[in-house]
Design a binder for these strands. Structure first.
Length: 816
DNA sequence: GACTGAACTATACC
DNA sequence: ACGGGTATAGTTCAGTC
């Protein structure tokens, strides 16, 4: 029976039937029904021919290729057909044979059989079949399609249709719909609590589930406690089975958790195995599968599992203020939610009241995850649509991979054959590469400055890459008549002036970013913002991509050229500004801070126009802001001005603090707060009087032991397994103590401690470091000399005040 | 045993 | 293994006097 439906693909999968590859799309129709579409797809790859190979030879090669067969236990893969095309590869024209094969899994094996000397490269066999399908058939995620085809039943394709959907169709035609109504997926958030931190070691005590019209906590513990959302089961096994049942009933498009790739789903799997039950969450009743990777990604067949932590880490973290990526902190920043403090105790110690709080806490985490998902959905879905990769992939891939995928999905417009991924030896070779020289940082003179402004280059790296056409394909072997020459430390490199596909795609990204940013400003909503943001992230990742060892279009020469060009422009602009009667006081990479020197704001804008007139290509300088005051200090050694460390106040009294201890999470709150307040007082008032008084008061309090302990806690991140540390630092000493006490210690955690007084005055700091709950008095001298004074010393030095002497004088004065 | 500089480590800036 | 380089700064640790 035939049918026509309007369908939106959400999940992409594939399967083999009779040795051939088929694509399985899961999504919804416009009435909200769950649909599965089976589509046929013939994977292919390219054999690139030596330029000048004769037609006759090519025909012979094609005939040879057509006879290739790969036999394995489960299938015979053959070449279905070959086609000859005129293609581009790294910007040059070639004849290339397009080789269609019956099963993509044997692509590598078939490519290995192409030893003919006329074939100079084999490409495209290392692209995932689902990406290839999307590129080739142009069936994009989260886009509506009019689909017609034959309804299939459970017996077809060896039962592939025997899954939990309303309708399964074997596609005959799939065409993009004219109307693209907005789509809201059905989402379920979940979170587990266990009595042991280590995966699988303890029991899962409870699981919360939150969706639209769904708020549940499933448990098998303390069932007497009456809470309407708590549902009680006989044991862990029953609870796990109910968890699976509820998810099936709810039938979500997306299941979301926070760190669920790394914790919740591995734990659930471990406990399911222990209880000898199947975690059959897939639409085909399959188990959760874990893909290889640094953090294994948990995949559920037919349902998109999204670990929000992973997406936030790659897409948001550089723009967030939060010091950790924990759910509570991120939710409080992104949603403005107040944090719920909850102390994780050993199970034996919990009171009835505490169990009640535990249930509520568990539910709250799913609520936060659900709301965070709603907030992130525009970004996640736009990312998927812009990059043209499925939701599962864009939420797991790093920015380098996302960028690369964007390029791969846009190569066809340039008739370009994709470059291959580097393999092991090449990767290790690339990783040995010495660093190339980076951007320019201006050596500031420490002082308090008045009346200044900052210019910065918009999208600096992308604009240089585009304007100078820097890329792998445009890098030339030698100087040509129409090439750009760039001087690097040890050599000269040349780039063609004929615009390459990399620059073209990147300039499109920048243009779209501009366009959607304007659209957002005209019509501010989460979708226009997300679209603009997706292009911004892609543009910003392009420069790092050039130097990344895993990149298909790896080109450190282009990266090094971009920085060489950047240094040139920044320095030239600084010179020009100084000659015009301004005084540049600082610069880092793409920004220039300068004194107005009696110039008016409109004169500054005129200067900006003048500079922009002479900038090449799409390079552009813009005004960041005008500032009332700014302070630069010396380094700790005190001999010269510190780079990457300054504080500014604009004309609306808004502070901008960079690099100071205030913004560093590995300093105690006390030192950070004092420094922040002192910077604020000095910048607001233009002098240090009030700040000095304030400092004296705090030091008095410190010496009288009136400072709360929570202000004295120092937090340091554990960045690798404890055993790999060569130095025995305070945070490692504490981490070891925590392990002995069987407290959870894991990579990525912030280790918290404070410095306590000891009898041995010369004891090492690590020997004085104590866990926060210990009751030994804090070490006054340490907090004074190693926290407070280092944080404020060079600020007062700007006013020629030696703060140590002032404190010492104060001490002697009290003696008299 | 005090001192010094290198090594190790963490974190920020753009 | 899962963008880049530049920069500051604390603590430990090994070598020197």
């Amino acid at each position: 029976m035939n049918t026509d439906i309007k369908f939106i693909p959400i999940d992409y999968d594939y399967f083999d039937f009779n040795g051939k590859n088929y694509i399985k799309l899961i999504g919804r129709d416009n009435k909200g029904k769950r649909i599965c579409i089976i589509d046929h797809f013939n994977p292919y790859f390219w054999a690139i021919l030596k330029q000048g190979t004769s037609e006759k030879t090519i025909q012979k090669i094609q005939q040879k290729i057509q006879k290739i067969k790969i036999k394995s236990s489960s299938r015979i893969t053959s070449v279905i057909k070959t086609e000859l095309h005129n293609k581009n590869y790294l910007g040059e024209e070639y004849k290339a044979i397009k080789i269609f094969i019956s099963n993509y899994k044997d692509g590598h094996a078939i490519a290995d059989k192409l030893g003919m000397k006329e074939i100079i490269a084999r490409r495209g066999y290392d692209i995932r079949i689902l990406s290839k399908y999307i590129i080739d058939k142009n069936i994009l995620p989260l886009t509506w399609y009019n689909t017609s085809g034959e309804i299939i039943d459970n017996d077809d394709f060896a039962g592939i249709a025997n899954i939990d959907v309303d309708l399964c169709v074997k596609a005959e035609s799939i065409t993009k719909s004219e109307s693209q109504p907005s789509f809201t997926p059905k989402v379920l958030a979940f979170d587990i609590e266990a009595d042991e931190f280590e995966i699988g070691k303890g029991h899962i005590l409870m699981i919360s589930l939150v969706g639209e019209n769904m708020k549940k906590v499933l448990t098998w513990k303390h069932c007497k406690i009456k809470q309407d959302y708590v549902e009680c089961f006989k044991d862990e096994e029953d609870m796990l089975e109910a968890f699976v049942k509820y998810i099936k009933e709810y039938s979500p498009d997306i299941i979301t958790g926070y760190f669920s790739d790394g914790f919740d789903l591995p734990y659930l799997r471990a406990r399911a195995i222990h209880n000898k039950i199947k975690l059959a969450l897939g639409l085909d009743n399959s188990n959760v599968k874990f893909a290889r990777g640094r953090i294994p990604s948990a995949r559920i067949s037919g349902v998109i599992h999204i670990d929000l932590f992973r997406f936030i880490q790659t897409a948001y973290s550089q723009y967030l203020q939060s010091e950790t990526l924990g759910l509570n902190e991120i939710a409080s920043e992104l949603l403005g939610e107040k944090k719920i403090e909850f102390e994780h105790k050993q199970k034996a110690k919990r009171t009835q009241k505490e169990w009640k709080d535990f249930f509520e806490y568990n539910l709250q985490d799913s609520i936060l995850t659900y709301r965070l998902f709603e907030k992130a959905w525009p970004d996640i879905s736009e990312f998927s649509k812009v990059i043209q990769e499925p939701l599962f992939e864009v939420t797991r891939d790093t920015m380098a991979t996302n960028s690369e995928n964007y390029f791969l999905h846009n190569l066809d417009k340039f008739n370009e054959i994709p470059e291959k991924k580097p393999i092991h030896e090449e990767i290790s070779e690339r990783r040995m590469r010495p660093r190339y020289q980076g951007a320019f940082v201006f050596q500031p003179t420490p002082n308090l400055y008045n009346n200044l402004a900052i210019f910065d280059f918009t999208s600096y790296w992308p604009s240089i890459i585009v304007s100078f056409n820097l890329s792998r394909a445009t890098l030339l072997d030698k100087k040509q008549s129409n090439s750009t020459e760039v001087n690097l430390d040890d050599k000269k490199v040349y780039f063609s002036k004929k615009t390459g596909f990399f620059s073209k795609i990147l300039s499109e990204i920048i243009e779209k970013r501009k366009k959607y940013k304007q659209e957002y400003q005209k019509n501010p909503n989460p979708i226009t913002k997300a679209r603009s943001n997706a292009y911004k992230l892609l543009a910003n990742a392009s420069y790092g991509y050039l130097g990344f060892f895993g990149a298909r279009y790896y080109c450190p020469e282009a990266g090094a050229s971009a920085t060489a060009i950047s240094r040139d422009f920044t320095k030239k602009t600084i010179d020009l500004m100084n000659k015009q009667g301004y005084k540049v006081i600082y610069s880092d990479t793409d920004s220039i801070a300068f004194l107005l020197n009696k110039h008016t704001k409109s004169q500054v804008l005129e200067l900006l126009k003048k500079i922009n007139k002479n900038l090449p290509g799409i390079m552009e300088l813009e005004l960041e802001d005008f500032y009332k005051r700014g302070i630069w200090v010396t380094t700790r050694a005190g001999t010269f001005g510190a780079k990457k460390k300054y504080a500014l106040i604009n004309h609306k009294d808004k502070l901008k603090i960079r690099g100071f201890e205030t913004v560093r999470r590995d300093w105690c709150r006390l030192a950070r707060n004092i420094q922040n307040n002192i910077l604020k007082m000095i910048l607001e008032q233009g002098n240090h009087e009030k700040a000095l008084e304030y400092l004296k008061q705090i030091i008095k309090k410190l010496k009288k032991r009136e400072i709360e302990k929570k202000l004295l806690i120092i937090k340091t991140q554990l960045k690798k397994p404890i055993s790999e540390y060569k130095a025995n630092t305070p945070h490692i000493a504490i981490a070891r103590q925590m392990q002995e006490k069987e407290m959870p210690v894991d990579i990525g955690m912030l280790i918290e401690y404070y410095i306590a007084e000891t009898k041995d005055k010369k004891a090492r700091i690590r020997d004085k470091a104590k866990l926060p709950d210990e009751n030994i008095p804090y070490d006054i001298e340490y907090y004074l000399n190693n926290q407070i004074l280092p944080a404020v010393e060079n600020i007062f030095q700007v006013f020629n005040i030696n703060i140590k002497e002032v404190i010492e004088r104060g001490r002697q004065a009290t003696l008299f």
